[in-house]
Design a protein around this nucleic acid. Structure first.
Length: 866
RNA sequence: GCUCACGUGGCGGAACUGGCAGACGCGUGCGCCUCAGGAGCGCAUGGGGAAACCCUUGGAGGUUCGAAUCCUCUCGUGAGCACCA
């Protein structure tokens, strides 16, 4: 295609301004202590979820969120804030490592190349980042502190009394290793043979790896874990204070999965053992007719009767070899085997059989349940299959109501009235729960408790391209390296292939591995999430060589938010605005909160939460309304859009498409639409010369705005300001279009209008705003400095007022006519005027008017009698 | 299955706290300008109807002087969870 002459020379001025901003350090954010730091200004920390620099380059989805934050950053600077708006790279991760395995090229090389490309692309869009704060999670100066934070976790425990992390030295018990926040455990984990590594629960989706979709199996292994469960309660409770979308809060709450219930002890006299179960329905204890242990339950071999041992062993082996996928797919039919053991139901002394079945999961509760088939669907299915007793102990309805016939296929799981339950009979479920728990506690057979779905965070990976653990192994015991030995860098390797064993690729570097005669290094590395758990802190003070973040910098940027009017708001967290996709709802956003709370508890931070306000951008679909993917061939490349329409058009279009949070399809026609708008703005100021160049328009004059223009201008100031504050960028753009259309045909064209429009436009389309501002400066005074360093315009309500308002005239709620009325017309005048409107009179005809509703400035509704 | 979110023209979407539905943009039609236009400018554009007028925010009810907005049910789409005891 022959390149068409562009409607305005963006390809000249966009790169020009980009390099000028870069050269002048226009968006540098001074820290407290710097010579140019202005302490009187309020601060604003606006952060993007930093990207993984993939080989694909920047995606239009990245740009949507980044444009939104850039608009806010630029706007906040113009209203007088110190703005921290940084960017960096989350560069440890699988793709670079897999590329290395294929090509033998060191991941560092690929990573550096990708970072360079990403950076160039971001700069070509004119984002106002303070590039002096840039870092990558793979920089030794950065991951040194990631390792340091790991040591804080390793050297801390969660004190249940204070509900806080404390240094391990304060632990009163004997075995510190039992309570460390970072600990080693031998347990069944998600092993992905294809990736040669284990994965966290959060990284496994429907039995497959989130990355690549490879099958994942369960396999017992020795792994590093982080004790995130200790924080489950605070992670739920403290969500309440955050300005996050309710949907994300809900996702986190559900993921953490708090449920209240009771622990109940069942004795097995024959083997002198006891089984503890968790139940949310202690009120149904009288209906417990059997028990089920998870196949992995440690008590299984102890209690199994000799004549059952081989059956049980076979079943355990089968269950153990099943992948998660198989185990969930085979859910239609319940399976299980009887252990031959009997337990005593503590409430009635009955002997009930103990089974094992894979529908009971070791990972939740105690790995054992009491089965109440009448009131639990799964127990019912199991009981029916194996012919176990079903006993109804709750009836539907209120006290005195009839007992519903137990249906054969559907268990009654709702609340109701206890029956067949001795001391509970006649009690409604909530009271029955309290009563039985009190009874159990008194007899020391059980107690009220809270259980969570959240598992501890599996924190080690068998990979090369990640942070090595600052840990040594001596005689089979782990020991922390001293802080002074950080960072621990990966050894150089020729071969990055996973070993397929828990040792991982680092074990191939024998020199590196051998720390001393006795000590060997830990060969696992940290998961990719480690680096993103605290990067927002490092941005406050990225060059600090003495501390992970300097205290002054941290307390300045992470506390003391003020809104645009300088008012302090209630706050708990540090980053004032955090924008990114929903895909991190239960991963990064949960992990980062956890680390942050630990560091806060240990006294390193000033706030208990990392992100005060979170906004999710919606997914951008391809033009065909499908998810963008290479295989569908519907991926929009931002570089092409910039070449064709310019960076300002790209930015503006992404904001104009629709609400930020919403999913929406791409449309090249839509890009052309905003491109035409920017061309119209350009021609407001410039006109074409005979020679085909551009010169200031001869229509431009220093005349007053007409009252209509002034009203439009002030309405635009108001709307754009409010819309930026409320993230309604699409309607802000609409309003600027309206204002521009007001000036298009005005001759002479008042320069004063541009003094308002260009600053409003500059956060959205900074290049054209700067260029036109500079061009106007050649002839008109007052256009000194830059558009982006202008104070934000302030609207004046008095210019918005009109003398006459158009009213809708309704009869019985239907618009029949319209009328004009003075803005301060009295109610009586409005009524009279409405009744006189011809079409309204026709609609009223000879019927009686019962009342007239007046909505000032809007409408008059004539209500007729029935 | 459970939980949550969302359904408005041919399309993306507007509509403050219940107050004139369809702003703005795309597309389309007609006209102007032009050597030319995938440029620009003007007018029109929810549907039906010649018109008066009627209909219209997924569907059905309800509350209200008045509902896209609130309530109940229902259908559809999307997301998350999924044997969680």
């Amino acid at each position: 295609m022959v390149s068409q002459r562009k409607q305005f020379p963006f390809h000249e001025f966009e790169p020009k301004w980009q390099s000028q901003w870069l050269a002048s350090g226009a968006f540098r954010a001074p820290n407290p202590g710097d010579a140019d730091f202005r302490s009187a200004k309020p601060k604003f920390y606006v952060l993007d979820m930093f990207p993984y620099p993939s080989g694909e380059g920047l995606h239009v989805g990245h740009i949507e969120g980044y444009t939104a934050t850039d608009i806010v950053a630029r706007y906040k600077r113009m209203v007088g804030f110190n703005v921290l708006h940084p960017m960096g790279w989350d560069a440890f991760g699988l793709p670079a490592e897999q590329f290395a395995i294929k090509t033998g090229q060191h991941p560092r090389v690929t990573t550096e190349r990708n970072i360079a490309r990403f950076k160039e692309q971001l700069q070509s869009i004119g984002f106002s980042y303070d590039w002096a704060r840039e870092f990558s999670t793979t920089d030794p100066d950065y991951f040194r502190w990631t390792q340091w934070i790991f040591l804080r976790l390793y050297n801390s425990w969660f004190n249940p009394v204070t509900r806080k992390a404390e240094p391990i030295a304060t632990y009163p018990g004997k075995v510190a290793d039992d309570v460390r926040l970072a600990y080693v455990a031998e347990m069944p984990v998600n092993w992905c043979p294809a990736l040669g590594t284990v994965l966290a629960n959060e990284e496994v989706v429907e039995g497959k790896s989130e990355v690549g979709g490879h099958p994942v199996e369960r396999r017992p292994m020795r792994q590093w874990m982080l004790r995130i469960i200790a924080y489950a309660e605070r992670l739920i409770d403290e969500l309440a204070e955050l300005d996050w979308p309710e949907g994300i809060k809900l996702l986190q709450r559900n993921w953490i999965g708090r449920s209240e219930g009771a622990l109940v002890r069942f004795d097995l006299p024959e083997t002198k053992s006891e089984i503890e179960v968790f139940t949310t329905r202690p009120d149904t204890l009288f209906g417990a007719t059997y028990m089920v242990l998870s196949p992995e339950h440690p008590l299984v071999s102890k209690i199994t009767a000799p004549d059952r041992a081989s059956n049980v062993e076979t079943y355990r082996r089968q269950a153990g070899s099943k992948s998660d996928l198989e185990r969930t797919e085979l859910t239609k039919e319940k399976t299980g085997v009887f252990t031959g053991a009997f337990a005593t139901n503590p409430v009635n002394g009955e002997k009930i059989p103990v089974w094992i079945a894979d529908y009971v999961l070791m990972g939740y509760g105690t790995g054992a349940i009491m089965a109440v088939p009448a009131h639990d669907q799964r127990d019912l299915e199991f009981a029916k299959k194996f012919g176990l007793e079903i006993r109804q102990v709750v009836k539907e309805g209120n006290a005195g109501g009839n007992a519903a016939e137990p249906t054969p296929d559907v268990a009654f799981t709702g609340e109701g009235i206890a029956m067949n339950s001795a001391l509970l009979n006649g009690l409604p479920t909530p009271e029955a729960k309290l009563r039985i728990v009190a009874w159990l506690e008194q007899k020391e057979l059980g107690r009220a408790t809270v259980s969570y779905k959240l598992r501890d965070w599996l924190f080690s990976r068998q990979r090369y391209w990640g942070e090595p653990f600052p840990i040594l192994w001596v005689d089979g015991r782990h020991r922390a390296l001293d802080e002074t030995e950080l960072p621990v860098s990966q050894p150089d390797l020729e071969d990055f292939k996973p070993t397929g064993a828990p040792e991982g690729p680092l074990s191939k570097a024998s020199d590196w591995l051998r720390y001393s005669e006795m000590a060997r290094r830990e060969t696992n590395t940290m998961p990719q999430w480690a680096g993103s758990c605290w990067y927002y802190l490092r941005f406050c003070d990225p060059k600090n060589g003495k501390r992970f973040v300097g205290e002054t910098a941290e307390s300045y940027w992470m506390t003391g938010l003020a809104n645009s009017r300088g008012e302090q708001s209630r706050r708990v967290g540090g980053v004032d605005l955090y924008v990114g996709g929903t895909e991190h709802a239960v991963l990064h956003l949960l992990y980062a909160r956890f680390w942050h709370k630990v560091l806060y508890d240990l006294g390193y931070l000033s706030t208990p939460e990392p992100f005060q306000r979170l906004v999710n951008q919606g997914v951008i679909l391809g033009p065909d309304n499908q998810k963008m993917s290479k295989s569908r061939g519907n991926v929009v490349n931002p570089e092409n859009v910039i070449a064709e329409y310019g960076a300002d058009s790209l930015r503006l279009y992404e904001m104009f498409m629709g609400p930020l949070e919403q999913m929406k399809p791409w449309s090249m026609k839509g890009v052309e639409g905003v491109y035409r708008f920017l061309a119209r703005v350009w021609r407001l100021v410039m006109e074409e010369t005979q020679e085909g160049g551009w010169a200031l328009s001869s229509d431009l004059t220093e005349v007053d705005l007409t009252s209509r223009q002034r009203r439009a201008a002030h309405a635009t100031i108001k709307k754009v300001t409010e819309d930026i504050e409320s993230f309604a960028f699409n309607t802000a753009v609409s309003q600027m279009m309206i204002l521009t259309n007001e000036f298009v045909n005005s001759r002479p064209r008042p320069v004063a209008g541009l003094r308002i429009l260009l600053p409003l436009l500059s956060p959205f389309a900074p290049h054209i705003a700067e260029e036109l501002w500079a061009r106007l400066g050649e002839k008109f005074p007052g256009f000194d400095d830059h558009a982006s360093s202008q104070p934000w315009p302030i609207h004046d309500e008095k210019f918005l007022e009109v003398d006459e308002v158009e009213y809708g005239v309704q009869v019985n709620g239907k618009v029949r006519d319209r009328m004009r009325a003075k803005k301060d017309a009295s109610d009586a005048e409005l009524e009279e005027c409405a009744l006189a409107a011809p079409k309204a009179r026709e609609a009223v005809a000879d019927r009686r008017v019962s009342k007239i509703v007046i909505v000032r400035g809007k409408l008059v509704n004539i209500v007729l009698a029935k």
